[in-house]
């Protein structure tokens, strides 16, 4: 049996000392070892995107990365998106525009959009729809997700967060 690795994982700016088998995916480590269950597991083969998190600011599938690989990297999850009680503009836009129903895919969409907008704040409407095709949603038919991200992109461009 493979031995466990003792590593420090930095998630949302906070250090977590974890002892993990190398076979544990980052998604499982975040959920089970760090107690951050906002990252959801929908397919474990990289298609649905429910487990999308940011690793060094890039959106990645946390089911397709092992936890040990996130050592010395900055991981961000949905739990770190809001600023205290103030929702991130993406969260606010999803709320106001009914960008979620069951909410299971929502953390993945939020982190996908957050990462993509950080890389390119000036994405066109078509580019936004294209990037959002990375993840699956079964409830909304996508249009309110697309609308929410477009609105949040405008809000983010308009000014820094309060």
């Amino acid at each position: 049996m493979a031995s466990k690795f003792n590593i420090d994982l930095t998630v949302n700016g906070k250090s977590h000392a974890v002892s993990i088998e190398p076979r544990r995916t980052l998604a499982d480590v975040l959920r089970d070892d760090c107690g951050l269950t906002g990252t959801h597991i929908g397919c474990e083969h990289g298609v649905c995107g429910a487990c999308t998190v940011l690793v060094d600011d890039k959106p990645v599938r946390s089911c397709l990365m092992f936890g040990v690989q996130a050592e010395r990297k900055a991981v961000r999850t949905v739990e770190g998106l809001a600023d205290g009680d103030t929702l991130h503009p993406l969260q606010q836009a999803f709320w106001e525009n009914h960008g979620l129903q069951c909410g299971f895919c929502t953390p993945g969409f939020l982190m996908l959009a957050a990462g993509a907008l950080e890389e390119n704040p000036d994405m066109s409407d078509d580019e936004i729809r294209d990037v959002l095709s990375s993840n699956l949603c079964r409830c909304t038919g996508y249009q309110n997700i697309v609308k929410a991200v477009r609105i949040a992109a405008r809000a983010l461009r308009a000014g820094p967060r309060a």
């Binding site: 269950t37 009914h98 929502t106």
Partner: peptide, 19 residues
């Protein structure tokens, strides 16, 4: 009306069975 269910779901505080 924006949904009453949403704030917890948006912050990652939803509570599904795997949680």
């Amino acid at each position: 009306l924006p949904r009453l269910e949403d704030p917890s779901l948006l912050k990652g505080n939803g509570s599904y069975v795997a949680d």
